[in-house]
Simulated assay, not measured.
Amino acid sequence: MKDQMNGLTKSGKIIIYLYMLFTCLVSVFPILWIFLSSLKADPMKNPGLSLPTELSFDGYIKVFTELHVLDYFWNSFKVVSISVFISIIMISMSSYVIARMEFRGKKLITMMLYSTLFIPATAMTFPVYRLVNVLGIYNTPLALMFVYSCSGIAMSFFIIRNYFAIIPKDLEEAAEIDGASYPQIFWKIMLPIARPGILTAAILSFINNWNEFYWASMLVINPKELTVPALLAQFTTDFNTNYNGLFSAIVVIILPPILLFTFASKYFIEALGGGAVKG
């Protein structure tokens, strides 16, 4: 990246820096706006990106003391972690087969996996709701695990498959000569090499499922099993909305994904750069 920047003209560098600055401002603006609003006693009286005239931490206090946000955090972490683990294992195996092997119907299967990207959640409402009831897992964490394990398949498949595809075939051929079976090649050789791509897909899936509200509010109504997004509904009634508490809850909810992405950013860079595969 540094070498590429050195090859640009001065005007080109200025344009790139201005674009990056604009992108940062657009990304940070909503987070900063929500954070400042959470510190205002009544955000509607002093709306917008402005400093609070008087600091108010009532929303944060209510989130941790009255609503017990840590219980919601545990419910979300339990559901999301298990579903991501199941999903990534299945997608990693299917991605390896499609990326490294030739068989009849390969293009059709690939197309079907990618097509899930264009199916909105609302179109699946009735079939999923009925299936969850038939399986007897409605209003349990298993319902969300079942749905989340099958969600976001296209994006995870795209990332992991592309990473498997760039790994040199010499590694597989050398392992086959040494007598390794396909499962051994996958688990002991291919999977560790593709770790950056797999972790990138897992983190993106974790963040998407952590913030998911549609299925979380529909399939689970037991207050003891509600996930983090359902916490937001606690601040809205038919007659009033507690915006101070709502914004405070949003700040608390978005912190784990931000911290997760911050600590795992090196895997994103490595995955986008194609990894460090040496022949």
Rank of each mutant, 00 (worst) to 15 (best):
T237K: 08
S87K: 08
A123Q: 10
S265A: 08
W187K: 05
V26K: 02
S27M: 14
Y243L: 14
N75K: 10
P223L: 10
G48C: 12
N162L: 08
M93T: 15
I15V: 14
Y182Q: 14
F261C: 05
S95W: 04
I185M: 14
A276L: 14
V97N: 00
D238K: 12
T236G: 08
G48K: 06
V128F: 11
D42A: 06
F268K: 01
K13S: 08
L39Y: 00
G273F: 00
W215N: 05
D71Q: 08
G152M: 03
G136S: 05
V84C: 00
L8Q: 13
V79I: 15
Y114H: 09
K278Q: 15
C24P: 06
S156Q: 13
E102C: 02
M145N: 02
I91R: 04
N240Q: 14
S87Q: 12
L49E: 02
V80Q: 00
K107V: 09
S83H: 04
C24Y: 15
P47Y: 10
Y214I: 01
L55F: 10
L255E: 10
S181C: 03
K106Y: 14
D170Y: 09
Y267K: 05
L25R: 06
F239M: 13
N162S: 14
S248W: 05
E176L: 13
I61A: 12
G179P: 04
F247A: 08
I86Q: 00
N240D: 14
S94P: 01
L255N: 11
E270V: 04
I91Y: 01
G197I: 11
S151H: 00
T140G: 11
P168K: 09
L21I: 11
I203R: 04
F186L: 15
L199M: 10
L171M: 13
G152I: 06
S37P: 03
S37I: 01
I254L: 02
H68P: 07
I166K: 04
L67Q: 07
Y114V: 02
V252I: 15
P127I: 08
T140D: 10
L32V: 12
S76K: 02
T125S: 07
T23E: 06
G152H: 01
P47I: 00
L49K: 06
I166Q: 13
T65R: 15
G273Q: 00
T65K: 15
F103H: 08
M111H: 11
D170C: 02
S92H: 01
M190I: 11
F35W: 06
L39V: 07
V252G: 00
I98P: 05
G59W: 03
Y243A: 02
F247C: 11
F186P: 10
E270C: 04
Y17S: 09
F261R: 04
I193R: 06
E102Y: 06
A271C: 06
I258G: 05
A175E: 07
N242F: 01
I137P: 09
L260N: 07
F186R: 03
G197S: 11
A99C: 07
L36E: 09
V63N: 12
I198K: 00
F73H: 00
S76C: 02
P168V: 05
I167R: 08
I258P: 05
A201I: 11
Q184I: 01
A123T: 13
V132S: 02
M101T: 10
A202W: 08
I177A: 07
N75S: 07
V28I: 15
D178K: 09
I166P: 02
V228W: 01
V251P: 05
P168D: 06
V26A: 12
I82M: 09
I91S: 09
Y243P: 05
P183S: 08
